[in-house]
Design a protein around this nucleic acid. Structure first.
Lengths: 218, 218
DNA sequence: TATATTTGTTAGATTAATCTAACTTATTAT
DNA sequence: ATAATAAGTTAGATTAATCTAACAAATATA
């Protein structure tokens, strides 16, 4: 059984691995907000547990076992977010912090019951896939809004990052998962997107915001 | 903010205080399954935090602040038990272990929402009172079944101890909170109780079991 | 290629929570 | 009242997770 701290390292490496295969000690230390020696020590200990490959002066990499464990923590996190959202009526901007704590609860029964009550969901409230009980993750293939051409109609399906600021911004603009956005125009000067919403209001999204929105074309 | 460990000490002292006012270091160490020096050290540290009174060679006692903190942890525990039971359909014998972990979650929002969803309950699934948000506890005044005379009809309202074994035993006998029990006879030899249930079956309860059942007379 | 910069590692210290062994103070019992 | 027992304390060690300072290795740059 990993400690809570080690579970957080596992999760950090799990996420960092998705972008680039290997993870440097420096990246890890930054993600975990700890010093480099701390990250280094922890990497060694996690190697002893068989969760990752570690060689002096080389980036680390999760073992099969480590990857599975990481995915299972993400599973618990996202199931919890879904439960908080669907059963306990929390807003999508409120669920992350609470799930960050509940994900460490040691009870399969508890998470299995959540899963059952929710009807075995595959996506969390931010559109991210919930790994299955074996740690397998559904591959979703959304497009980044920033790459879509003017005139196109799209549906919001996920978020590249689920920071509270972004979620509050989307709340304010009345944009949620499933919202349909029509791209009217892209401003050459700053790459901002002029967008028509379902309620016929027109809003402006900066390129940065568009980079965070995952959509499918309609 | 108390650590998880210190919260558990707080809770232990809180419960030990209900029987006898003061709590000896030895009692505490037994309750916490730690050595006496460990309990002793912890007592000193908790004194520094202002949670208890500690003097060398004397039993410890919670301060007002410590008592309030303890009660608030019990509140989180019992609200959780109620939520697990009412919302997530767990049996009363399953809720304790999970609540033991969830009680340490640091989010008033989370527990307030539970409270709201449950309709602000005052008792947990075992009939124990849920302390309010200020740590005040409703005084319940149940009788111990072992003190009731033959011929009397009673309703089960609470449990003196909620051990899993007792709860499973009661499940097997189809006895639950609210069940009406009629005392037919008390066996002189071993003080066992012959009891008539609502379904007209007659069962035998040992004196030990009776000591664990809290009732009100009908 | 030689140097500068970044990255990674060692060493040594700290804090929280725990232990055992040895000792002291209190309590109990003869 | 004194000895025996129980309770409480000190001292010193351990493990997990963290830090800073100093050094070594790898990478980037002039």
């Amino acid at each position: 059984m990993p400690t809570q701290t080690k579970e957080n390292y596992l999760k950090a490496i799990y996420f960092l691995s998705q972008e680039n295969i290997d993870v440097s000690i420096t990246e890890l230390s930054k993600k975990m907000n700890v010093s480099k020696p701390t990250a280094n020590n922890m990497a060694k200990k996690m190697q002893e547990k068989g969760w990752l490959f570690y060689e002096k002066y080389k980036p680390v990499k999760l073992t099969i076992k480590g990857k599975r464990l990481g995915a299972l923590i993400v599973r618990k996190h996202r199931l919890t977010e879904m439960f908080l959202s669907q059963v306990m009526s929390f807003g999508w901007e409120e669920v992350h912090d609470i799930a960050e704590e509940i994900e460490h609860i040691n009870s399969n029964l508890f998470f299995d019951r959540m899963d059952e009550i929710l009807g075995f969901p595959t996506l969390d409230p931010h559109g991210s896939p919930i790994p299955d009980k074996n740690g397998k993750v559904l591959k979703v293939n959304y497009l980044n809004l920033s790459t879509i051409k003017p005139g196109q109609k799209v549906r919001l399906c996920g978020l590249e990052n689920s920071s509270k600021d972004l979620l509050l911004f989307l709340n304010k603009k009345k944009i949620k998962l499933g919202s349909v956005l029509s791209i009217l125009h892209i401003e050459k000067f700053d790459n901002s997107f002029e967008i028509l919403l379902e309620n016929n209001s027109t809003i402006l999204l900066t390129f940065d915001v568009c980079l965070s929105l995952l959509v499918e074309e309609l």
